[in-house]
Nucleic acid binder design. Sequence first.
DNA 1: GACAAAGTGAACGGCTCCGTTCAATTAAAC
DNA 2: GTTTAATTGAACGGAGCCGTTCACTTTGTC
Lengths: 201, 201
Amino acid sequence: MGRPVDAGKHDAIIEAATRAFFKHGYSQASIEGIAADAGVSKVTVYNHFGGKSELFQRAVEKRCDTIRQRLIVDEWDGPIGERLREFGHAMTEFLMKPEMIQFEIGLAAEVEREPELGANFFAAGPKRLHSALAGLLERARDRGELQFEDAEMCAEHLGAMFKGLTDLEQRMGIPIDPDRTARRISSAVDLFLRANGTGKG
Amino acid sequence: MGRPVDAGKHDAIIEAATRAFFKHGYSQASIEGIAADAGVSKVTVYNHFGGKSELFQRAVEKRCDTIRQRLIVDEWDGPIGERLREFGHAMTEFLMKPEMIQFEIGLAAEVEREPELGANFFAAGPKRLHSALAGLLERARDRGELQFEDAEMCAEHLGAMFKGLTDLEQRMGIPIDPDRTARRISSAVDLFLRANGTGKG
DNA sequence: GACAAAGTGAACGGCTCCGTTCAATTAAAC
DNA sequence: GTTTAATTGAACGGAGCCGTTCACTTTGTC
């Protein structure tokens, strides 16, 4: 009985918190500002979440969920070179979104304060992408399109080449040339196939 | 005439500032704390540097100088595989030092406020390493040990493989296995040589 | 030793924020 | 319409920090 909790406000707070935390950083973000942005009283924020650090935790969790949902990698067919190129483009498009970079920056700055947040994010995002790529490589090996020993290692090499220097450049605020990204992906796949391809793909 | 400026205090302040900024982040670091750490009065800090943001600027500049000095890459001889492995170890050892990771994290968080800092750091550090690697590759090509078209691109691929996922893991506070790093470097060189080697190295 | 500038310690005003309290208001459930 | 709980607005104490001021002490030069 009594007035029920307004779930809409609950979500609005988390969303406003996510925006604030990963735009300004944990310490710069203010509960007052988040409450105002969510169209809610500061007291309501405290009633819902208890405090700043709990709120940050929830914001990260929610973001990880979103990442997890979007990371359903399609299993399409075609020559292995094509599949890898597709994967590379999907991966870079996803990881290099400005909001994702900002999220990573903000999270890294808070990891010392709350170490498990970093591990959670890594497992929800990059680790899953990496596993998906390793799986893709293993299936190609089963088909005789590739030859290698360690799929995990190959996935790490390939994924790293897809990113190149670009993620660092983005963190340092250096503008990115999309053409170079496309050429890098293509070149990385070529290099990888020269080393590990069988010519069957 | 009068009392001369104490250069020792000047340096002590910059060093304390560097420590504070890249351990706690710009906004968390306090002038009061930096002054205390440097064994100096707060007023002295203001007299020397004028304010917090100027002090941060100087701290970054000093760090970039240090990086530049240490980045003199030896030109030693030997088979190309050996040289690349050496480079990989030197590079990862340098870039994966906890203090360097912390520096990068702290800097990324401040780039929005002061964009040129990021560009300066990138030019002083990663860019120089990248150029050194590209030069190494080109000389090996001249000797007929390698074949490729774009040295810059190859350097980016190789450098990225050397780092792998590890720099992200470090930023996310995940413990690093040094053995895996060594195996990754070795594996990356092998992969690169299978793709671009001539067998002459 | 006189002088001049560097450096100190303490205090101040101003600002922002956290987290709490409390009376008053709103909105749904019964 | 009464009950119950969510929500609000405003205010508070406490904390930390910035940047400045000022009287005072130190330390070197002339």
